[in-house]
Each structure stands twice: as structure tokens, then as C-alpha cells.
């Protein structure tokens, strides 16, 4: 019974993954031009999984982990966004976001640990 539940869940997730990425009802030339735009949906799905962990996390440490991972995912989002639009400054936003996310994660870790900030 448990195996059947696991298989159903895996099939639903993998089909969401694959159908958001490859559209089977278009020609090959169109597929190449749509590849990156469909890649956004995969990152969007990953972001939704992180949000699920932020909402449901039993301890504060779980939420901090999910926030950290979401920050790195947004850097990948910025990197992909630079290719089809042809604008170079998206990667600058990515660098700034990664720096900010790193520092905020360190501050959150100190806060969870229960120490003061000046140590």
C-alpha cells in the first residue's frame, strides 16, 4: 500500500516536472526556442517546494534552511533570465542577491543559536 502511494506521488511529480519542461505538442524548431522559457517553470516548482517547507517546518531551523535554499534558487533564476531577454544586467542582480542572502543566513544562524550579534 505504501509503495503504491509512493509510486503515485512520484508519477505526479515527475509528470509535472516533465510537462512543464518539454511541450510534446510542438515541432523541434519551436522546442529549441521554448526551452529556456519552460525551464522557468521547473525553478518555479522548486520554489513552491521550498515555500511548502517554510510554511510547514516544525522548528525555526527548518525555515532558515528553506530560506537559504530559496536564495540560491533565485540566483539561478536570474542567470537563466539573462539569456532569452539578452540583457546583461540580470547577473549583476544575481551577484548582489547572493551576497545579501549569505549575510542574512549567517545572521539567522546566530539568532537561532541564541547568541548576541557582536560575537
Amino acid at each position: 500500500m505504501r509503495i503504491i502511494r509512493w509510486l503515485l506521488g512520484l508519477i505526479v511529480l515527475l509528470s509535472a516536472f516533465v510537462f512543464s519542461w518539454f511541450n510534446p505538442f510542438c515541432s523541434l524548431l519551436e522546442w529549441q526556442s521554448l526551452f529556456l522559457k519552460r525551464g522557468f517553470f521547473v525553478l518555479f516548482l522548486c520554489g513552491l517546494l521550498c515555500l511548502w517547507r517554510i510554511i510547514r517546518g516544525p522548528t525555526p531551523a527548518d525555515r532558515a534552511v528553506a530560506i537559504d535554499i530559496l536564495g540560491i534558487l533565485i540566483l539561478g533564476f536570474c542567470a537563466i533570465l539573462g539569456i532569452p531577454t539578452g540583457r546583461d544586467w540580470y547577473i549583476d542582480i544575481g551577484i548582489a542577491w547572493a551576497l545579501q542572502s549569505f549575510i542574512s543566513t549567517l545572521a539567522l544562524a546566530k539568532y537561532i543559536e541564541g547568541r548576541d550579534f557582536d560575537e
Binding site: T59, P60, A61, A64, V65, D68, I72, L75, I95, A98, L99, F102, T105, L106, L108, A109, K110, Y111, I112, E113, G114
Partner: peptide, 22 residues
Amino acid sequence: FIILTAPVSAHALSRGAHSSGV
């Protein structure tokens, strides 16, 4: 930058979680 900083933040979070009693 990512290769240098992601393990450091993982280290800090795990140590904070352990000393806060998770």
C-alpha cells in the same frame, strides 16, 4: 562565490540548530 559561501552557511546553520536543541 557560491562554492565558497554555501558550505559556510550550511555549517553555521547546523551548528546553530544543534546548540539550540533540535
